[in-house]
Amino acid sequence: GKMTGIVKWFNADKGFGFITPDDGSKDVFVHFSAIQNDGYKSSDEGQKVSFTIESGAKGPAAGNVTSL
């Protein structure tokens, strides 16, 4: 299901970062391709987002990331 969290950091040059879930669980990796914004796929530190957890090649990753 959908979770909410805060972007801990995001490196636009490398195209990835981490989200800290609101439920206190482990930080989740986020790749720019998962960000659902139109246009520039980046996110700012401290941005509140909703997301799903997908199982990626390197473990859990955020999917369907949407700014709230």
Results as ranks from 00 to 15, higher is better:
residue 66 T to E: 10
residue 10 F to Q: 01
residue 17 G to T: 02
residue 37 N to L: 12
residue 38 D to K: 12
residue 26 K to W: 07
residue 31 H to W: 09
residue 19 I to W: 03
residue 39 G to R: 09
residue 7 V to T: 01
residue 17 G to I: 05
residue 58 K to R: 13
residue 38 D to C: 14
residue 5 G to I: 05
residue 29 F to V: 01
residue 9 W to M: 03
residue 17 G to N: 02
residue 18 F to C: 09
residue 14 K to Y: 09
residue 65 V to R: 01
residue 28 V to H: 00
residue 45 E to W: 15
residue 7 V to Q: 02
residue 53 I to K: 05
residue 43 S to F: 15
residue 44 D to I: 15
residue 24 G to M: 05
residue 19 I to M: 01
residue 65 V to C: 04
residue 48 K to R: 14
residue 55 S to K: 13
residue 48 K to W: 13
residue 56 G to W: 11
residue 57 A to G: 09
residue 1 G to Q: 13
residue 4 T to Q: 06
residue 39 G to S: 11
residue 13 D to N: 12
residue 63 G to K: 15
residue 6 I to F: 10
residue 56 G to R: 09
residue 34 A to H: 06
residue 1 G to N: 12
residue 16 F to R: 00
residue 64 N to A: 07
residue 55 S to D: 12
residue 62 A to D: 02
residue 33 S to E: 04
residue 8 K to Q: 03
residue 19 I to R: 00
residue 15 G to W: 04
residue 49 V to C: 05
residue 57 A to Q: 10
residue 51 F to C: 03
residue 37 N to E: 11
residue 28 V to Y: 04
residue 30 V to P: 00
residue 62 A to R: 01
residue 44 D to P: 15
residue 2 K to P: 09
residue 16 F to N: 00
residue 25 S to E: 05
residue 51 F to H: 00
residue 47 Q to I: 11
residue 15 G to Y: 04
residue 23 D to M: 05
residue 57 A to V: 13
residue 17 G to C: 06
residue 37 N to K: 12
residue 60 P to T: 09
residue 59 G to D: 03
residue 24 G to A: 04
residue 67 S to C: 13
residue 37 N to C: 15
residue 13 D to Q: 14
residue 53 I to M: 09
residue 29 F to E: 01
residue 65 V to Q: 02
residue 52 T to D: 07
residue 56 G to H: 11
residue 56 G to M: 08
residue 11 N to D: 11
residue 26 K to I: 09
residue 21 P to A: 03
residue 16 F to L: 03
residue 25 S to Y: 04
residue 26 K to P: 14
residue 43 S to C: 15
residue 23 D to C: 08
residue 47 Q to A: 12
residue 27 D to Q: 06
residue 46 G to S: 07
residue 28 V to D: 00
residue 24 G to W: 05
residue 12 A to F: 12
residue 48 K to D: 02
residue 64 N to S: 08
residue 35 I to K: 03
residue 7 V to W: 10
residue 29 F to L: 03
residue 28 V to R: 00
residue 57 A to D: 10
residue 56 G to T: 15
residue 17 G to V: 05
residue 54 E to K: 10
residue 46 G to A: 07
residue 21 P to Y: 05
residue 27 D to A: 06
residue 17 G to K: 00
residue 32 F to E: 07
residue 50 S to N: 04
residue 59 G to K: 05
residue 57 A to K: 12
residue 50 S to K: 05
residue 52 T to K: 03
residue 4 T to L: 08
residue 16 F to C: 05
residue 30 V to T: 02
residue 58 K to I: 08
residue 19 I to E: 00
residue 62 A to W: 03
residue 34 A to R: 06
residue 28 V to W: 03
residue 37 N to P: 11
residue 35 I to R: 00
residue 34 A to Y: 05
residue 43 S to I: 15
residue 36 Q to N: 11
residue 23 D to L: 04
residue 8 K to L: 06
residue 27 D to E: 08
residue 34 A to E: 07
residue 29 F to Y: 09
residue 43 S to P: 15
residue 36 Q to G: 08
residue 30 V to Q: 01
residue 66 T to F: 07
residue 62 A to G: 02
residue 49 V to W: 04
residue 37 N to H: 12
residue 55 S to P: 12
residue 27 D to Y: 04
residue 28 V to N: 00
residue 10 F to P: 00
residue 65 V to Y: 01
residue 29 F to T: 00
residue 21 P to S: 04
residue 18 F to N: 00
residue 22 D to P: 02
residue 28 V to M: 04
residue 46 G to C: 13
residue 63 G to P: 02
residue 7 V to I: 15
residue 42 S to H: 13
residue 5 G to Y: 03
residue 43 S to G: 11
residue 63 G to R: 14
residue 41 K to D: 10
residue 7 V to S: 00
residue 18 F to Y: 08
residue 31 H to R: 05
residue 13 D to H: 12
residue 31 H to E: 04
residue 56 G to Y: 09
residue 1 G to W: 08
residue 16 F to Q: 00
residue 53 I to L: 11
residue 25 S to Q: 06
residue 17 G to A: 05
residue 30 V to M: 13
residue 33 S to M: 07
residue 68 L to Q: 06
residue 34 A to I: 04
residue 47 Q to K: 09
residue 18 F to T: 00
residue 43 S to T: 15
residue 15 G to S: 03
residue 58 K to T: 08
residue 52 T to G: 02
residue 14 K to G: 05
residue 3 M to W: 08
residue 12 A to G: 07
residue 45 E to C: 15
residue 38 D to E: 12
residue 67 S to M: 15
residue 2 K to F: 12
residue 39 G to P: 10
residue 37 N to V: 12
residue 1 G to E: 11
residue 36 Q to K: 10
residue 2 K to W: 11
residue 48 K to A: 11
residue 62 A to Y: 02
residue 36 Q to P: 07
residue 33 S to D: 04
residue 63 G to V: 14
residue 60 P to R: 14
residue 6 I to K: 10
residue 17 G to H: 01
residue 7 V to F: 09
residue 54 E to D: 08
residue 1 G to H: 12
residue 9 W to T: 00
residue 49 V to M: 03
residue 38 D to N: 12
residue 64 N to K: 09
residue 1 G to S: 11
residue 39 G to K: 10
residue 56 G to I: 04
residue 55 S to A: 13
residue 57 A to N: 10
residue 20 T to A: 10
residue 42 S to M: 13
residue 36 Q to A: 11
residue 48 K to Q: 08
residue 41 K to Y: 12
residue 13 D to S: 13
residue 35 I to Y: 13
residue 36 Q to H: 10
residue 5 G to H: 02
residue 66 T to P: 02
residue 9 W to I: 02
residue 22 D to F: 07
residue 41 K to P: 10
residue 48 K to Y: 11
residue 23 D to A: 04
residue 45 E to V: 15
residue 54 E to S: 10
residue 6 I to R: 11
residue 12 A to M: 11
residue 59 G to Y: 07
residue 39 G to Y: 11
residue 13 D to V: 14
residue 40 Y to E: 08
residue 48 K to T: 06
residue 13 D to G: 10
residue 13 D to F: 13
residue 38 D to S: 14
residue 62 A to C: 05
residue 15 G to T: 06
residue 25 S to D: 07
residue 57 A to E: 11
residue 55 S to E: 13
residue 28 V to S: 00
residue 14 K to D: 03
residue 37 N to W: 14
residue 37 N to Q: 13
residue 44 D to Y: 15
residue 4 T to N: 05
residue 36 Q to L: 13
residue 31 H to C: 10
residue 33 S to R: 07
residue 59 G to A: 04
residue 9 W to P: 01
residue 65 V to K: 02
residue 10 F to W: 14
residue 32 F to Q: 09
residue 13 D to C: 15
residue 18 F to P: 00
residue 21 P to M: 04
residue 49 V to L: 03
residue 32 F to S: 09
residue 14 K to T: 06
residue 63 G to T: 14
residue 21 P to N: 03
residue 22 D to R: 02
residue 19 I to F: 02
residue 7 V to C: 11
residue 43 S to L: 15
residue 42 S to G: 11
residue 59 G to I: 04
residue 16 F to W: 14
residue 32 F to K: 12
residue 34 A to Q: 11
residue 41 K to H: 12
residue 11 N to I: 03
residue 8 K to W: 05
residue 20 T to Q: 10
residue 29 F to C: 06
residue 32 F to G: 06
residue 43 S to A: 15
residue 41 K to V: 11
residue 53 I to G: 02
residue 10 F to L: 03
residue 17 G to P: 01
residue 47 Q to H: 12
residue 49 V to E: 01
residue 55 S to R: 12
residue 18 F to G: 01
residue 41 K to F: 14
residue 10 F to I: 03
residue 47 Q to C: 14
residue 45 E to N: 13
residue 66 T to L: 09
residue 24 G to E: 03
residue 59 G to W: 07
residue 56 G to V: 05
residue 63 G to D: 06
residue 32 F to V: 12
residue 24 G to R: 04
residue 19 I to K: 00
residue 25 S to F: 04
residue 65 V to M: 04
residue 19 I to V: 03
residue 31 H to N: 04
residue 68 L to M: 10
residue 58 K to V: 07
residue 22 D to A: 06
residue 31 H to T: 04
residue 22 D to Y: 05
residue 15 G to Q: 03
residue 4 T to S: 07
residue 20 T to Y: 05
residue 55 S to C: 14
residue 60 P to C: 09
residue 54 E to V: 15
residue 45 E to F: 14
residue 49 V to R: 00
residue 43 S to R: 10
residue 45 E to I: 15
residue 56 G to C: 10
residue 39 G to W: 14
residue 54 E to A: 08
residue 33 S to K: 07
residue 52 T to A: 03
residue 61 A to F: 15
residue 44 D to A: 15
residue 17 G to W: 04
residue 24 G to D: 03
residue 35 I to S: 03
residue 47 Q to T: 13
residue 54 E to F: 13
residue 8 K to G: 03
residue 13 D to I: 14
residue 51 F to W: 02
residue 22 D to I: 05
residue 47 Q to L: 11
residue 42 S to A: 12
residue 27 D to F: 04
residue 61 A to C: 14
residue 37 N to R: 10
residue 64 N to P: 02
residue 54 E to G: 07
residue 47 Q to F: 10
residue 1 G to K: 14
residue 63 G to I: 14
residue 22 D to T: 07
residue 52 T to R: 05
residue 61 A to K: 14
residue 20 T to C: 11
residue 42 S to K: 10
residue 46 G to R: 08
residue 50 S to D: 02
residue 61 A to Q: 15
residue 55 S to F: 15
residue 36 Q to T: 11
residue 33 S to Y: 06
residue 41 K to A: 10
residue 17 G to L: 05
residue 66 T to C: 10
residue 2 K to I: 12
residue 61 A to N: 08
residue 27 D to N: 07
residue 61 A to V: 15
residue 48 K to M: 09
residue 28 V to E: 02
residue 42 S to C: 14
residue 44 D to S: 15
residue 11 N to E: 03
residue 8 K to M: 04
residue 9 W to S: 01
residue 13 D to Y: 13
residue 4 T to H: 07
residue 4 T to P: 01
residue 54 E to R: 09
residue 22 D to S: 08
residue 3 M to P: 03
residue 51 F to Q: 00
residue 2 K to V: 12
residue 31 H to M: 05
residue 7 V to H: 01
residue 58 K to C: 14
residue 22 D to V: 05
residue 67 S to F: 15
residue 53 I to V: 10
residue 4 T to R: 06
residue 2 K to H: 10
residue 68 L to V: 10
residue 21 P to T: 04
residue 10 F to N: 00
residue 59 G to V: 03
residue 29 F to W: 07
residue 54 E to L: 13
residue 52 T to C: 09
residue 53 I to C: 08
residue 68 L to W: 06
residue 3 M to F: 11
residue 66 T to H: 09
residue 65 V to T: 01
residue 61 A to S: 12
residue 15 G to E: 02
residue 51 F to R: 00
residue 16 F to K: 00
residue 64 N to M: 08
residue 64 N to R: 08
residue 13 D to K: 14
residue 21 P to H: 02
residue 2 K to L: 12
residue 28 V to C: 06
residue 2 K to R: 13
residue 18 F to W: 10
residue 14 K to E: 04
residue 12 A to L: 10
residue 42 S to L: 14
residue 43 S to E: 07
residue 38 D to I: 13
residue 53 I to A: 02
residue 27 D to W: 07
residue 3 M to K: 11
residue 10 F to R: 00
residue 4 T to K: 06
residue 22 D to E: 05
residue 20 T to V: 12
residue 62 A to N: 02
residue 49 V to Y: 04
residue 38 D to T: 12
residue 33 S to G: 06
residue 31 H to I: 06
residue 16 F to H: 02
residue 29 F to I: 03
